[in-house]
């Protein structure tokens, strides 16, 4: 049973590490700011989430696990708020998003009220 939990926690940690890496590769590869944000949100949701689940399994049913769960809750509630603030500030400062399929270079200004 102990062995099984160890293996499971290892799998979750590896998955979390993989998605963190994928998110940061996206952060480098994506063509403009808004698409980079989408890539970074992979790191913030699945990467961090899987890693926290792995650590909770590693810790077992202790106070440490409760603290890790609070960290997960913090990510779940607060990280979208700061991404939203970032996206809104970028759009208001006049940073135009790249729109349309890749390569078409069509830049449609967003509808502003």
């Amino acid at each position: 049973m102990n062995m099984l939990i160890d293996i499971l926690s290892g799998v979750f940690l590896a998955g979390g590490a993989f998605f963190c890496l994928v998110g940061s590769i996206g952060l480098i590869r994506m063509p403009d700011f808004y698409t980079r944000m989408q890539a970074a949100s992979v790191t913030e949701t699945l990467g961090a989430g899987l890693m926290l689940i792995g650590l909770i399994l590693h810790a077992g049913l202790t106070l440490v696990a409760a603290k890790l769960a609070i960290m997960g809750l913090l990510i779940l509630l607060a990280s979208p708020t700061s991404s939203h603030a970032l996206a809104k500030a970028a759009l208001m400062s006049g940073l135009k998003p790249l729109l349309g399929p890749r390569g078409s270079k069509k830049e449609v200004p967003p509808s502003k009220p």
Binding site: F33, R36, A40, E44, S79, S83, L86, A90, S93
Partner: peptide
């Protein structure tokens, strides 16, 4: 842009 840097900082 400065927002790219901020996004990186948040990551």
């Amino acid at each position: 842009s400065v927002f790219d840097r901020l996004q990186a900082a948040s990551t």
